[in-house]
Amino acid sequence: MKLKKIIMAIVLSLSFNSFAQLTAVDYKDGEQVLSGFGIKPKSVSKDKPGVLLLPAWFGIDGHSKESAEKLAELGYYSFVADIYGKDNRPKNSAEAGKNAGYYKKNYDEYQKRIQLALDQLVKLGANPDKIVVMGYCFGGTGAIEAARANLKVQGVVSFHGGLGKDISRPIGKINPKVLVLHGADDPFVPKEEVDAFQTEMRASGADWQMVYYANSVHAFTHKDAGSDNSKGAAYNELADKRSWIALKDFLKEVL
């Protein structure tokens, strides 16, 4: 009986690996070629919910791809967005900071790139009325920008993302539900930024939640961030697991 169960598990594993695979997808913003990754779920529900993933400041990485694969296992169409462009991938931290800084400042261009990726998620098969945007670090900032732009999504999730915006920008009504998963000791998002964000959420009439994780700093979901909190960015296994559970609960609620 045990042998039969083992064989069945192997068959199911092979079946999933042969079906739910990340596929490179080229698309464009004007003349700029973008190249993201899409993946379909193992089993397709009639609602066809989808999740758009926005990567951290280095652009598409193993972490974002792994998350897309995990979401496909849960039954979601997933697409990993390319914000920078196929020929504009940063080679080091200096370039990553410059690229991310540009889109944080030119938030309308960031929002446009997010929308273009959303279009690809729908082309992949996701129901346009059943979509959530999630992002890590710089991508978490993008998820918040998707809410500020009121893109056609049911909700957004920011993992250890930047929350600030220029004070000259007006505060408008925010329709998507907002979930912020935040390191309680994140030195890169000062208290003033958190307070301003919460004030914005209240003024916008948003349905928002903010969860703090103890002993966690920036990049707490990134296993390659090391374990030294004194550096400001470090992996925290417990916060990583808890935040993923919070994501799954949020997806079930809004999708």
Rank of each mutant, 00 (worst) to 15 (best):
S18T: 14
L74N: 13
A246T: 07
L3T: 09
G172Y: 14
G75V: 00
A196Y: 09
A117S: 10
F16E: 02
E66F: 09
A203P: 08
H160W: 01
K91Y: 07
D129I: 15
N106Q: 14
V25A: 05
N17Q: 14
H182R: 14
Y107S: 14
L163W: 01
P55N: 05
L247Q: 13
I131W: 00
S15N: 10
S243H: 06
D185E: 15
G62L: 06
S64P: 01
N88A: 13
V153I: 08
Y84M: 10
K252C: 08
S43D: 12
Y77E: 03
A94N: 06
V25G: 00
Y102M: 11
E253N: 09
K2M: 13
L52A: 00
I114F: 04
S227R: 08
S67R: 08
K65D: 01
L238G: 10
A225V: 15
Y76L: 00
P187M: 09
G142M: 07
K5P: 03
A214Y: 03
K191M: 05
W208D: 03
K223C: 01
A56N: 13
A56L: 11
S35D: 04
F159S: 11
E237R: 10
G38P: 04
A146T: 05
V44R: 03
E69F: 07
E237H: 10
G232R: 06
A233S: 12
K130M: 08
L53R: 04
H63V: 04
S78Q: 02
R113V: 06
K241R: 11
L118T: 02
A206M: 02
E253H: 08
K177V: 09
E253R: 10
I114G: 01
T141Q: 10
V180E: 03
G30Q: 02
V157N: 07
H218E: 03
Y77N: 07
Y110K: 08
Y27S: 01
N175T: 15
V180N: 02
S64M: 03
H63A: 07
I83T: 07
P190R: 05
I83E: 01
V11C: 13
K2V: 10
A24M: 04
V33C: 11
S230Y: 11
N150W: 05
D108I: 15
D228W: 12
K152F: 10
I144G: 04
Q32K: 10
R169N: 15
A94C: 00
T23A: 09
D47W: 09
V11H: 11
H160P: 00
L124I: 04
L247Y: 09
L251R: 03
N150M: 07
N106I: 14
E95N: 07
I114V: 10
E73N: 08
N150G: 12
F138Y: 11
N236P: 06
F188A: 12
D207C: 14
L124R: 02
N215C: 02
V153M: 06
K65T: 04
V211D: 11
K5D: 15
D249K: 15
F197E: 01
G232Q: 10
A214H: 08
E253K: 15
I6L: 14
P170M: 12
W57A: 13
R242I: 12
G226Y: 00
N88F: 10
R89D: 05
M201G: 00
F188T: 13
F220N: 06
V217G: 00
E237L: 12
A56R: 09
D129K: 13
L163F: 08
S204H: 07
K91E: 14
A147Y: 02
E31N: 15
V122I: 08
S158T: 02
Y103V: 02
L14R: 05
A146Y: 02
M210S: 03
